[in-house]
């Protein structure tokens, strides 16, 4: 793997690795790692850094929903145009065009079920190109970005010293 690929893969696993550790882990110079990250950011490959949060363990668990959106296209309006419009709403956490029975899969986040419902009814459904929405409230998250939200029962039970 190139240093670029290694750095990207390491940051995907843990964006909090220090530059010094990234250099040690990839056998590269710190300056090379720094330049690589700057490059990845400038090129728009890396779009941001965030924490993977198990909201159930917080005091104010937000309400999240997946909204299926069906749209109709015409000569002037493509998927990208509709997506641009939807993505602008701060309530929209994620937006993906998918294959299958509907077009967009939209992640929505708000403080209450009422807020999510109002958002879908008042902001999303009225968009002229949107023909139908189906809202699924998220009930539980078991795994996100490769991280399992279990109770960490896979503790290390190996012998502490072995041949």
């Amino acid at each position: 793997m190139s240093v670029r690929d290694e750095v990207l893969s390491l940051l995907c696993e843990n964006a909090r690795h220090s530059i010094a550790d990234l250099a040690r882990l990839t056998d590269a110079d710190e300056s090379e790692v720094e330049e690589t990250i700057e490059e990845l950011e400038a090129e728009g490959v890396i779009r941001g850094y965030g924490a993977v949060v198990d909201w159930r363990r917080t005091d104010d668990e937000p309400v999240r929903a997946l909204v299926e959106c069906n749209v109709t296209l015409d000569r002037e309006t493509g998927y990208d145009d509709i997506a641009d419009r939807l993505a602008k709403f701060p309530e929209v956490e994620s937006l993906r065009l998918v294959s299958g029975d509907y077009d967009f899969s939209m992640g929505v986040r708000a403080d209450s079920m009422g807020e999510v419902s109002r958002f879908v009814a008042e902001k999303v459904a009225p968009v002229p190109e949107i023909t139908q929405t189906v809202t699924h409230y998220l009930m539980a998250t078991y795994k996100e970005q490769g991280i399992e939200f279990d109770d960490g029962h896979d503790d290390d039970d190996r012998l502490s010293v072995s041949p």
Partner: peptide
């Protein structure tokens, strides 16, 4: 332990 002879 860095004394373990098996995968983690």
């Amino acid at each position: 332990s860095l004394g373990v002879g098996e995968p983690d």
